[in-house]
């Protein structure tokens, strides 16, 4: 199989997971789509020098997170509004009485780096050192960011769920 065919096979199999991660990091489907497209383009250009195809998923994740870090820095001044207030609790749906949506809405209000820590730790199931490495921050920062997010979430959960 030539390199192009290998890339295409990887794309078909793995793009959905990349899309999901991008959506959770960006919080917006359009931004997520941009992130994925940039990531795939960079991965495509780097494909020929990736000797170990088993590492491609991790490599792609790193590019995605790196792109996301760049994008939040570019847009931080004009778009990010950090607030301590959790948005209105969404309407209940058939999944879980709205609790998961409330938690997701909370996650969406987190500052970008804190959100990235949460997504990598609790969705990608990375360890603290792995999360620190991917984000280029210290393990201590990962711990403190996660701790703050959890504490904030706990404080904003409906009373009966605490």
């Amino acid at each position: 199989m030539d390199a192009r065919s290998e890339f295409e096979a990887w794309l078909v199999a793995r793009e959905p997971s990349l899309q999901r991660l991008a959506h959770l990091l960006a919080g917006d489907p359009h931004d997520a789509r941009d992130l994925v497209q940039k990531t795939l383009a960079k991965l495509y250009l780097a494909w020929g020098r990736l000797e170990d195809r088993h590492d491609v998923d991790a490599y792609a994740r790193r590019i995605l997170v790196n792109e996301h870090r760049s994008s939040w820095r570019r847009t931080a001044r004009r778009r990010e509004i950090v607030t301590a207030d959790v948005p209105e609790r969404p309407v209940d749906d058939h999944h879980d009485d709205g609790l998961r949506d409330a938690v997701w809405s909370f996650v969406a209000t987190l500052p970008p780096r804190q959100r990235a820590v949460i997504v990598l730790r609790y969705y990608e199931q990375l360890t603290e050192p792995e999360t620190a490495e991917v984000l280029g921050i210290s393990v201590g920062t990962v711990k403190s960011q996660a701790h703050r997010a959890i504490a904030s979430l706990r404080a904003h959960l409906p009373q009966e769920t605490r």
């Binding site: 793009e15 899309q19 999901r20 959506h23 994925v36 999944h95 879980d96 998961r100 938690v103």
Partner: peptide
């Protein structure tokens, strides 16, 4: 709760293949 909410959100969002 975070694990469940993130997993749920990821699974409920549809994507177009590139």
């Amino acid at each position: 709760l975070l694990r469940d909410a993130l997993q749920d959100r990821a699974e409920r969002t549809s994507y177009d293949a590139t």
